[in-house]
């Protein structure tokens, strides 16, 4: 395994191609989309990018273990509302952030336990919990919580680095750097890849598969919590649908970043680039003068093309490996 990795560890990886593509798009936008690189626009993209990426890193970990979480959107909405309820008391951000992380962690751990204890496929289990989260949400509030104090929206309006960069970027940077090192060097991350590749052999190798998966969901939940608090604090009103549809964006970012939904492969760096590409699409289309109605179609096309190209490359690699035994049996 190690040797094989070393051999293919040339710079021609999925991440490399993605980075080239991203660079090309950025240059293209610089030339053709006037006003794309204004400070306001870049900062607003960076803010969207930050919260997408933080949650996408969590989703990436889950998908590496060959599980998935489709309840993220509902979960983020729940945490948004709950933190708004706490935030109304006038608590500072320093308390709101850990509170949101803990809430996200608890909800996501429920997912993890549900999946591991009942052995139900993750997509079905999280589909069921989505309905629970969605149902509980509006019961607690009458549609939305509003008139939130300044202490709640501190992150979005007052916390700016150098007076312009949103503080969410700083949070995102910290999370990303930690994740990059964690997923590369920690023993826990090796377990994730092992489980994703082959759950049974991982168990035989002495990994406590169930515990690892639950912990993965818990960590991802904490990251979803951070995302939730960034989304929630963006305005003085928090509604019950703040996070809906987020899960699809996250899964798309992760897939675009080269992580296979079969599990066992994928890097944080890929997700970092994938999330950036998807965050750029909507504003880019806007500044290119194309109707914003086409943004979803462009996103879909980008995902399909990148996945098909990625698969055709893997094909070539696999063919080289498989040819020997196939020649023997046929």
């Amino acid at each position: 395994m190690v040797q094989e990795k070393k051999r293919t560890a040339s710079f021609l990886t999925t991440e490399f191609y993605l980075a080239i593509f991203l660079l090309a798009v950025l240059v293209f936008l610089g030339i053709f989309a006037k006003g794309f690189y204004t400070i306001n626009n870049v900062m607003s993209i960076l803010n969207t990018y930050s919260y997408t990426l933080i949650a996408a890193i969590g989703m990436n970990m889950i998908i590496i273990t060959s599980n998935i979480d489709v309840s993220t959107g509902a979960l983020v909405s729940v945490v948004c509302l709950a933190s708004a309820a706490i935030g109304k008391l006038g608590l500072p951000f320093a308390i709101l952030l850990p509170a949101a992380m803990v809430m996200g962690m608890i909800l996501s751990t429920i997912n993890g336990l549900f999946i591991t204890k009942t052995k139900i496929p993750a997509i079905v289990a999280t589909l069921a919990t989505t309905q629970l989260f969605q149902g509980v949400l509006p019961l607690t509030t009458e549609g939305s919580i509003y008139d939130l104090p300044a202490s709640f929206t501190w992150l979005a309006f007052e916390a700016k680095i150098f007076g312009m960069v949103p503080a969410s970027v700083l949070i995102c940077l910290i999370v990303t750097v930690i994740a990059l090192f964690f997923m590369k060097y920690s023993r826990f991350s090796k377990k994730l890849y092992a489980i994703g590749n082959n759950q049974h052999s991982a168990r035989l190798a002495g990994i406590n598969v169930e515990k690892t998966i639950v912990i993965t969901y818990a960590i991802a939940g904490a990251l979803f919590g951070i995302t939730a608090i960034i989304i929630a604090t963006a305005g003085q009103r928090v509604t019950t649908t703040m996070g809906s549809g987020l899960e699809m964006t996250l899964i798309a970012s992760v897939i675009l970043g080269g992580t296979s939904t079969a599990g066992g492969s994928g890097k944080v760096l890929g997700t970092v680039i994938g999330a950036l590409i998807l965050s750029i699409v909507s504003p880019a289309i806007n500044y290119l003068g194309i109707s914003p109605n086409w943004s979803d179609a462009v996103k879909g096309a980008i995902i399909i093309i990148s996945v098909v190209v990625g698969a055709s490359q893997q094909f070539k690699k696999k063919k080289r490996v498989i040819q020997i035994p196939e020649g023997g049996t046929l």
């Binding site: 899964i251 939904t261 399909i304």
Partner: peptide, 17 residues
């Protein structure tokens, strides 16, 4: 799952566009 997730976006986007 990946394929239909991507085409889901694509079909939605085309009909919206």
């Amino acid at each position: 799952m990946v394929t239909t997730l991507a085409t889901m976006y694509l079909y939605l986007g085309i009909s919206r566009g």
